[in-house]
């Protein structure tokens, strides 16, 4: 039987040293068994490598930064849809999720499907709300406190022991060993990302990640845990291995069951020396290492597309343990005209 062909648009083509997941997602889609694809890349900057990977991406359009506003994004997507007749869009950046979630009903009316967390899920899992999240869903999280005022720093030692982690609202985290360091990080991080600052209990242990897919009804469609083996100076995995850990899978299933999470996700977990697991962060999208999941038998992007199209998807039951991914950099040769084309016309 001839497979149906889907037009799928994907963002996050920045396969750089701190990579976006787009290129990995596209590789997964190209290997899907339930459909063939025509891939439209959506780019923000003219040097995103995925734009020039013509064997993976059929055509790329620039889209406006989220800061330009939802109406501007919608106008651009309408134009792209007219040309490409999109069936599905897979957004891959945290910062663009808010506008895409808001646009979901409008895009659906145009015939474009997505499979994203609800706005409520998206907000609730935010770093600032992690304590409440843990309490509400009965998931262990490191103790944390949101602070707005440098004066409140002095009372921290009565609640936290050193070292403690000082985190920014969106990015940045530093480990502080004294009140003076807390103050200095408070000032540095708040100058860059604004208030509040999050103080988090430091948990000694090993970091793990789980990627997976929830169907929005509480069921676990896919879940693959991974241990980072090599970490770049930006803290990104450059190599990792799939592992089998029932506790991690249990926590993942509990997370999905209790939140009824809809869409792809990545959990950042810490396991202390007593084997206790803590949830550090929830990323509301697929991770850049998603291709490992495909390699171990769970094509999560394919399942996500089928869910987006309203089809029934059988949960993955197994995956290969002990498979590794090792990332590598690759120098493409590109004609200047291609760069100028995407820069000037926003299409390639």
């Amino acid at each position: 039987m001839k497979k149906r062909k889907l037009n799928i648009a994907v963002t996050g083509l920045n396969a750089i040293d701190s990579p976006g997941p787009g290129v990995s997602v596209i590789r997964a889609l190209r290997e899907a068994s339930s459909f063939d694809v025509n891939i439209t890349g959506l780019s923000y900057e003219s040097l995103e490598p995925g734009i020039y990977m013509h064997d993976l991406v059929d055509r790329t359009y620039s889209i406006p930064y989220p800061a330009a506003g939802i109406d501007t994004l919608l106008a651009r997507l309408e134009y792209i849809h007219e040309k490409e007749k999109l069936d599905v869009i897979i957004p891959n950046f945290d910062a663009e999720l808010y506008p895409f979630i808001k646009l979901e009903p409008k895009l659906k009316a145009m015939g474009i499907h997505m499979f994203l967390p609800t706005l409520h899920q998206f907000e609730e899992r935010h770093k600032v709300n992690l304590n409440d999240f843990g309490r509400k869903y009965n998931i262990s999280v490191p103790k944390s406190k949101v602070i707005y005022d440098l004066n409140t720093v002095h009372s921290l030692p009565s609640e936290f022991s050193f070292p403690m982690i000082v985190k920014g609202k969106f990015y940045d985290a530093s480990i502080a060993y004294s009140i003076e360091q807390v103050k200095s990080y408070f000032n540095k991080i708040s100058a860059k990302w604004g208030l509040p600052i999050i103080i988090q209990e430091f948990i000694h242990g090993t970091e793990f990640n789980v990627t997976g897919l929830g169907d929005g009804k509480g069921n676990t469609i896919a879940a693959v845990p991974m241990r980072k083996q090599y970490i770049t100076d930006k803290g990104k995995a450059w190599g990792g291995i799939s592992i089998s850990d029932e506790k991690m899978l249990d926590m993942t299933r509990k997370f999905l069951k209790n939140t009824k999470w809809r869409g792809g996700f990545e959990l950042e977990l810490m396991k202390n020396k007593d084997g206790e697991l803590y949830l550090l962060e929830i990323n509301p999208r697929l991770p850049a290492w998603i291709y490992l999941a495909v390699g171990v038998g769970q094509n999560i992007p394919e399942a996500l597309v089928n869910l987006a199209l309203g089809e029934k998807v059988t949960p993955f039951a197994t995956y290969d343990v002990g498979k590794m991914f090792i990332r590598y950099a690759w120098d493409m040769i590109v004609d200047r005209e291609e760069f100028e084309q995407i820069s000037i016309y926003g299409e390639l």
């Binding site: 406006p64 930064y65 330009a68 501007t72 106008a75 134009y79 995407i342 000037i344 016309y345 926003g346």
Partner: peptide
């Protein structure tokens, strides 16, 4: 930002 961006913005 490419020129389409400024056009629609």
């Amino acid at each position: 930002p490419n020129k389409f961006g400024t056009r629609t913005e």
